[in-house]
Design a protein around this nucleic acid. Sequence first.
DNA 1: GCCGTTTTCGGCCCGACTGTTTTCAGTCG
Length: 571
Amino acid sequence: MENARIAAVFGRIADILEILGENAFRIRSYRNASRTVGDLTETLADMVAEGKDLTDLPGIGDSLAGKIREILASGTCEMLEDLQKRLPAHLPDLLHVKGLGPKKVKVLYERLGIQSLGDLKTAAGAGKIRDLDGMGAKTEQNILQGLATLESEAGRIGIKEAADAVRALGRHLDGVEAVRRWQVAGSFRRRRETIGDLDVLVEAPQREQAADGILAYRPIETILARGGQKVSVALVEGLQVDFRFVDTQAFGAAMMYFTGSKAHNIVLRKRAQKRRLKLNEYGLFRGKRRVAGETEEEVFAALDLPWIPPELREDRGEIDAAAERKLPNLVEPADIRGDLHAHSTATDGANTPRQLADAARQRGYQYLAVTDHSQAVTIAGGLKASDLRRHADRVRRVNADLDGFWLLAGVEVDILNDGRLDLPQKVLEGLDWVVASVHSAFSLAEAKMTDRILAAVRSGVVHCLGHPFGRIIGRRDPIRFDVDRVFEACREAGVCLEINAYPDRLDLPDVYCKRAREMGVTMVISTDAHKIADLDLMEFGVSVARRGWLEKADVLNTLSASSLRKRLTRS
DNA sequence: GCCGTTTTCGGCCCGACTGTTTTCAGTCG
Ligand SMILES: Nc1nc2c(ncn2[C@H]2C[C@H](O)[C@@H](COP(=O)(O)OP(=O)(O)OP(=O)(O)O)O2)c(=O)[nH]1
Ligand SMILES: [Mg+2]
Ligand SMILES: [Mg+2]
Ligand SMILES: [Zn+2]
């Protein structure tokens, strides 16, 4: 059983325990375990097979380790089976309705026999909910509204889409006079790959005026809540935006609270407790006295910590690392010297090699690799050996015309089902840069997929494994292979792992970047540009790298052109 | 259910907003 399924089992157990009214801390344990398992890069099956002690994992004790072993051995979890007998199978779905929590769901089930979202809609529509204790006509309306929101499937949006929304909103906020300063916090500031809502911190001495100004933003469809400290709205496209007001002296503490993550906040607040302090969004307090709050640096410092970059604030060991002064010095966009994955008109790109080179140069780059598809990708017009030779010659002629810029003649060669490369070794050897990618047979069994990728990594002609997991966020699951074996082979062979910056790929995912770095593998951040404008997607790849704890030295394309040339001839 | 140089038992982050209540529970951030 996959880690994701085990994580889901623990999440399900937590849902049911919540509806049953169980101990909140016990429930939290299941949620924490779910997160821990979901963040692992190694399969639990492998860890157990290797005899690793699962209780070494954060939030996993004897009980949960036993459940993991049980699930792996039997495919089921007896506790979950038993719990599911106590409640209708789809009752926990109701928890996804905004405004409905475990207590109300329990009442709806016990008093009205509601078992599903369908039942809920019928009951609300028939006006049956308003008569329940603790609920009224407003509750009923909110439930109908919540159901509509759920049906609209707004869901989480991609980081790029969120960035566009932030830009548009920012233009408005900049024009609101009562807004002295604003900053986006939440998952967007942490640069998660998907964003549930936008969280915006607003400094404004005249809050009512500021709120009125903000609420004049045209795309706002509904005001979900409005109080003295915060305003929540839904935009027409379904995106929720939470505004939080703050005074100058609490700006840093509020940024920390609002940036999260929730798990990170809890660990920090525990650290404060240990020092007989209290941390909240208003500051760090010793008794009634505020000891820090205006800047993040000051709050972290008062907790004996250096400032932690937002991308690391996921409770993945960053607070311990910070305490030991062992935080990585994260790679930055300005460190990037070139782009090593781009398509031209030779296959499915919109621009010529020359145009790509000029555009890269305009962005301050020293090099760009033209990496068109190989023949197997027929829909993209992939190149066969002879075409690629001619194409590479053309690229080299263009390169010869360029002063102080290196246009690498490369390819994105397919890794065929059996692990062979889609072009002859000879042709590949003659290129400056070879990216190898899986574009077919995504559902091979893990062992076969591992062999397939290992063959490519060990071919001796590949420089980089392109979008290693082949996932498309929200549309295609990652392929399955033995991650540690492949990464180890990459390290041995000096093959890099690509961080594909395309916003719906972002592949290598952050936790695997971290693992690869620990194993000594080098990454390459590439846009996989199919047109000039795509070159600007680099920032999203850099964000993934930062979330993956990568430093400049972990990323190949932070090298200057001359250093890169040396590095490539060496290997 | 997890965890620990203050603890192996007794804690577990902390606060805002809403709706229903007549003082606060539930939900969400
Ligand atoms: N201390 C504390 N802070 C929380 C809690 N829930 C949320 N926060 C903080 C941290 C979050 O990053 C921030 C914004 O909340 P969101 O629900 O919008 O979460 P976030 O933006 O992290 O993820 P998202 O992509 O919106 O789902 O508020 C909580 O239970 N306790
Ligand atoms: Mg958010
Ligand atoms: Mg939010
Ligand atoms: Zn490509």
